[in-house]
Amino acid sequence: MKSLEDLAEIRERTKALIQLKDGTYEKRVVVGMATCGISAGARPVFDTLKEEVESLGLSDKIEVTQTGCIGICQFEPVFEVYEAGKEGKVTYVKMDAEKAKKVAEEHLKNGNIVYEYTIGYTKL
């Protein structure tokens, strides 16, 4: 990279991609994979989401990616779903492979939020 223009170009391109505005992906799923998330079991959740999205044939439409600490230790493992054209996000908490599979089918594929697993409906 030689100039600020190069930097700005990468910025605009990636911004559109992760904000789901360039038509590449319809949904973005980010899994909290800091040390606390991983020790609470985020890895199998991440792997399951990847596998499910693949086997449902949604790999072209949905990006499953990792992120750092979302900041809510006692709810780990956590992942969040962003959708193109929609404000906000959905936060799924206390996940495991089984629940992740259900969210993949219900929410990622069919577009129905699985309320019982979201942050507001989960009792600790």
Binding site: T35, C36, S39, A40, C73, Q74, E76
Partner: peptide
Amino acid sequence: CVGACGLAPVCVVNDDVYG
């Protein structure tokens, strides 16, 4: 402190963390 205070008390066996 292994930095997993939300899971306290914590112990680590080899590389596995138990909360």
